[in-house]
């Protein structure tokens, strides 16, 4: 049995499940713990199929470059920055989902801090940029 997530993350997941914008949630250790249905289209795989993804496996499943096609280091990705610096970050990247399709996306990532200054993870939105 996995440990229970903090209630703040449970409620965020509930909110995300109702939104039509793509949402990605990571826990404080960088594990991908949830993404909603709109995000499934961008990531090219349903969450039911992918399940929670360990931090070490994320870069193997999803690739990212700048708009010139240069690979991006994990540390430069908005979500990873939000996780490591625990500050809001924003960026635009080219992203390849599990379906092999490259998409240009705009990402805003927010650290989630709960009561007693507990850092709980990252809540990120994905916007696909118009061609």
């Amino acid at each position: 049995m996995s440990p229970q997530h903090p209630v703040e993350m449970i409620l965020l997941r509930q909110l995300a499940s109702y939104l039509t914008i793509a949402i990605w949630m990571m826990d404080a250790d960088g594990n991908l713990i949830y993404y909603n249905e709109p995000a499934e289209r961008l990531l090219g795989v349903t969450f039911d199929d992918a399940g929670p993804i360990h931090a070490d496996q994320l870069s193997q499943m999803f690739r990212a470059t700048d708009f010139d096609g240069n690979p991006l280091a994990d540390s430069s990705l908005p979500i990873v920055k939000a996780l490591s610096k625990q500050k809001p970050t924003h960026g635009e990247i080219r992203f390849c989902g599990k379906d092999g399709v490259w998409r240009d996306v705009e990402i805003s990532a927010f650290p989630v801090e709960g009561q007693a200054n507990r850092f709980l993870g990252v809540f990120a939105t994905f916007w696909e940029l118009a061609e």
Binding site: S2, Q4, V7, I10, Q14, S17
Partner: peptide, 17 residues
């Protein structure tokens, strides 16, 4: 309230632990 379909998985259930 914390799940679209209740019960959710244990780790997504408020108060489980």
């Amino acid at each position: 309230f914390g799940s679209r379909v209740f019960p959710a998985a244990d780790e997504w259930t408020s108060g489980f632990e």
